[in-house]
Every structure is written in C-alpha cells, then in structure tokens.
C-alpha cells in the first residue's frame, strides 16, 4: 500500500503561473503601498517646511520684530498708522475660549464616561451612545450658528455685560463640540482597566461609587489625561465656531464676556479679507498658523504618547 519511491503527491492540472511576473507585481505593489504611507510623512514635512519658510519671510520684514511677536501684547495688523504684531492677545483669546470649553467638556465628559462604563443600564446606553455619535458628527459651522443665534442671546438675556460676540458663548459651543471626544476616549480608557481589578474591589465590599472612584479612575488616570489633552488640541484648533461667535477684536482680556480673537479667528479674517498677497498682514497669518500648529501638534504628540503608554500597561 505504501510506496515510498513514488511521488506521493498527485500532479496538479493546469499550467504554472509565471514566477517572475508574480515577483515583479509583488514588488510594484509593495512600492506603491510604501509610497502611500510615505505620503503622510510628506504631508507633515510640507506643513512644517511651508509654515516655517513663510514665517521666516514674515520675520524678515522691516515692520516686524521677533521679540515683539513672541512677547508683544498688542496685535493690530490691519488698523492704525503703526502696525503691531504681538501674538499674545491671540494666544490669550485662544486660551480663554479653550478654558471655557474645557470647563464644560471635561467634567461633563468624564462623568458621562464613568456612567457609561460603570453604571449605565443598557437602555440608557442605547440612547446615550447614538446621541454622542450624532453630536460628534455635527459640522462645527452648525455649532457656530448655534452659539451665535441661541447661546449668545440667552447669555445676554441673563446678564447685560455680555457683548454680541463673546468668548463665553463660543467656549460653550466648543465645549459641546468636544464633549463626544472626551467621553469616547475616556470611556475607552476606563474599559481598558481589567475586570479583575473591579471584581477584587467588589469582593472586599466596596460600593459601585468606591470602585469607580478609588479603583477604576486612578487605574485609568493616564488614559484620561491623554483624552483630555487630545480634546484640548481640538479646542485650540477649532475655527468655525470662534469665527462666528467669538468676534474679531484681539483683546488681552480674561473676561469671557468680552469679544476676543483667537489664532484661528485671525486666519479666517485674513483669508476672507482683501489683504494684499504677500503684505505683512498676509504673511503674519503663516506665522500665526505656525504657532497654532506647534501648539496643537505638541499637545497631540504628548497626548498620543501618554495614550500609547497607557495601552501598553494593560495589554
């Protein structure tokens, strides 16, 4: 029955495929895919190079000094006989809006995430999850419209001190926009905490609240911090809401009732206006964009790094 000398395999019918053609195709496809992947690096590189090159051109102008740009507290590129390019009013406006936004999004998002992850009965979950997904899918221009036509009139009717364009209204809208991001990233972090930790605490007679606050939250802390950072980066870079609701007066102020201008708001103003190409105010938008990129990219990089390390801990 056994015949070791014979070829044990049955011959397969058909003609063999060309090995060379296969190898060439394989190589070409691999090269194409590598090209696709390198494209994303090209994007990052061109962002850095273009923004830096134009910013350098801006700093070379006679009207501009680097010291004033980084330390000046007056930003008046369009009006007045003497132009001033001190970026702090723009940063101040950005941070003010971001602070308001985060004071809305972080606590609400954190509590919602804890609720979703640790408490929520399936029925409420089935309502909450889609709600947050819908919120996340709404274009930011819609939030801007909402801030301008609903939140601002509401604020003014509550308190006379609010201006038509104000940081507070824009901040609330940005906060609503960030809420789904905070919630979903935080919930991910909470879910990554092993079930066994919870079981251990419950087994010692802890209440659900004690398990959530004393066990799960501390264990997920770095993941939550990462979620917060990513949300902050989003708030800093948000454009349409502030362009509609925050105004366009670069004020050095911490009063959220006043009109401010953010970095993104300034860029919108320049690109919508008839600022002459290659004039100082046009070039200044590149310098502002560079600052914005450095800030958001920095926060994102740190956030992603913390997030990655957090994930590794629980894998």
């Amino acid at each position: 029955m056994t015949n070791p000398s014979a070829n044990p395999t049955r011959p397969i019918p058909g003609r063999p495929r060309s090995k060379t053609a296969q190898r060439v195709r394989e190589r070409l496809i691999q090269a194409g895919l590598v090209g696709c992947a390198l494209f994303s690096i090209l994007i990052t590189a061109s962002i850095v190079v273009i923004l830096a090159a134009e910013a350098i051109q801006f700093f070379r102008l006679d009207e501009v000094s680097i010291t004033e740009f980084f330390f000046g507290t007056e930003w008046s590129p369009l009006l007045g006989a003497e132009k001033h390019f001190g970026i702090w009013p723009l940063i101040c406006g950005t941070l003010l809006v971001t602070a308001v936004a985060m004071s809305v999004a972080l606590p609400l998002g954190l509590i919602t995430a804890v609720y979703l992850s640790e408490y929520a009965p399936p029925r409420l979950r089935a309502v909450l999850k889609p709600t947050l997904e819908v919120l996340a899918g709404i274009p930011t221009v819609v939030f801007g419209f909402f801030a301008l036509t609903v939140i601002t009139p509401g604020l003014i009717s509550l308190h006379e001190g609010f201006e038509i364009y104000n940081a507070f209204s824009a901040g609330i809208a940005v906060g609503i926009m960030c809420l789904p991001i905070v919630t979903s990233l935080t919930e991910d972090a909470l879910q990554a905490v092993p079930r066994a930790l919870r079981a251990g605490a419950f087994g010692l007679g802890a209440t659900r609240f004690e398990v959530s606050v004393k066990i799960v939250l501390p264990a997920a802390l770095s993941g939550i911090v990462a979620a917060f950072l990513l949300a902050i980066a989003r708030a800093v870079g948000e454009t349409m809401i502030v362009a509609l609701a925050a105004g366009s007066s670069p004020n050095m102020t911490l009063d959220p009732r006043e009109s401010v201008q953010t970095m993104t708001g300034y860029m919108v103003q320049i690109f919508l206006g008839d600022a002459s190409n290659y004039g100082p105010e046009y070039l200044s938008s590149y310098a502002v964009a560079f600052m914005l990129f450095v800030m958001t990219f920095g926060i994102t990089v740190i956030g992603q790094k913390i997030r990655k390390r957090f994930r590794e801990v629980y894998q």
Binding site: I12, P13, G14, R15, P16, R17
Partner: peptide, 11 residues
C-alpha cells in the same frame, strides 16, 4: 491551486 496555476473550469 488558483494562486499557483492557471486552471480551466473543468480542471
């Protein structure tokens, strides 16, 4: 088989 060889339907 289809990876390695060109086969007719009946094969």
């Amino acid at each position: 088989p289809r990876l390695h060889r060109k086969l007719s339907r009946s094969e």
